[in-house]
């Protein structure tokens, strides 16, 4: 069963690669612009390390890890406080609602103005991007906890501490995870864009440099790495979600059995 699942999940990417390979080899696609994926993979594995791709991956990853984890931490904390306190929500939500839709890349120049063109400005954009996504999802998760759970907690005189730890946190956990998953993908988008300008390392830097020197194979190598990282992050978070939220496991199908 698990083998079958795995096979199904790899089918679409493999098929896409195969199609691309065929089109490129047969001349249907111009191989100068669209080199076959096998050649890109060869380039990625054999040539790119010599060109310093690990340094680029390391640079991007450290920016993501720092910005994302700080952003998620702050987002969960702020979302919790806003979810639990009506006052705080009324106070802060208008601000959040205004700041959230601003494309984070659009504020990059401003951030560079404040934090300089070094590491800090790139970490900060990732931080801000993750922060708002996780905040909004956490907030909705906390507010959306069924009224009856609050009532049970009150009738049985559950302490404030236990209430936060054992009712609010798990109650909001599915929504929090939705935020975490959105934010990790978004972090990747932001960091690459931020590295297009004013960086001397990173996957975005690699792509931009390769474009400028017309080393298309290196550019594609950068794109492959991003795709791979994105999928890796998504599956890692899904794995973590299944571990941390076991009660949610195949809920959809269960509900039907129940009826």
């Amino acid at each position: 069963m698990r083998m079958k699942d795995f096979a199904i999940r790899t089918l679409a990417p493999l098929g896409a690669f195969l199609l691309w390979e065929l089109c490129s080899r047969s001349g249907l696609l111009d191989a100068r612009f669209f080199p076959p994926p096998s050649i890109i993979l060869y380039h990625l594995i054999m040539i790119s390390p010599g060109e310093g791709i690990f340094r680029d991956i390391g640079a991007s990853l450290s920016r993501i890890v720092l910005g994302y984890s700080a952003g998620c931490g702050a987002g969960i904390a702020t979302g919790m406080v806003m979810g639990l306190s009506r006052r705080t929500r009324d106070l802060l939500y208008p601000l959040v609602a205004m700041l959230y839709p601003i494309p984070k890349i659009a504020v990059l120049p401003l951030i560079m103005l404040i934090f300089g063109i070094g590491e800090m400005s790139k970490i900060m954009v990732v931080f801000i991007g993750s922060f708002f996504l996780v905040l909004i999802n956490t907030l909705h998760g906390v507010v959306g906890i069924a009224r009856i759970h609050h009532q049970v907690a009150r009738v049985y005189r559950i302490s404030r501490r236990a209430y936060l730890r054992h009712v609010v946190l798990p109650g909001a956990a599915p929504a929090i995870f939705a935020g975490l998953k959105l934010a990790i993908g978004y972090s990747l988008v932001i960091v690459v864009a931020a590295e297009f300008s004013g960086a001397d390392a990173g996957i975005g830097y690699l792509i931009w440099q390769s474009w400028e020197t017309f080393s298309l194979k290196s550019m594609y190598a950068g794109l492959f790495v991003i795709a791979l990282l994105g999928a890796l992050f998504a599956y890692a978070l899904e794995w973590l979600e299944r571990r941390l939220i076991p009660w949610r496991d195949d809920r959809d199908t269960r509900e039907h059995h129940d009826a």
Binding site: H149, Q151, V152, R157, S159, A162, H166, P170
Partner: peptide, 24 residues
């Protein structure tokens, strides 16, 4: 107190739903 429905905490096993309240 027993409510109409959905009053158990979905994130706790049945045993934990009871023992959690007792622990409090």
């Amino acid at each position: 107190m027993v409510f109409q429905e959905h009053a158990l905490f979905p994130w706790m096993t049945l045993e934990r739903n009871l023992s959690f309240i007792l622990d409090q």
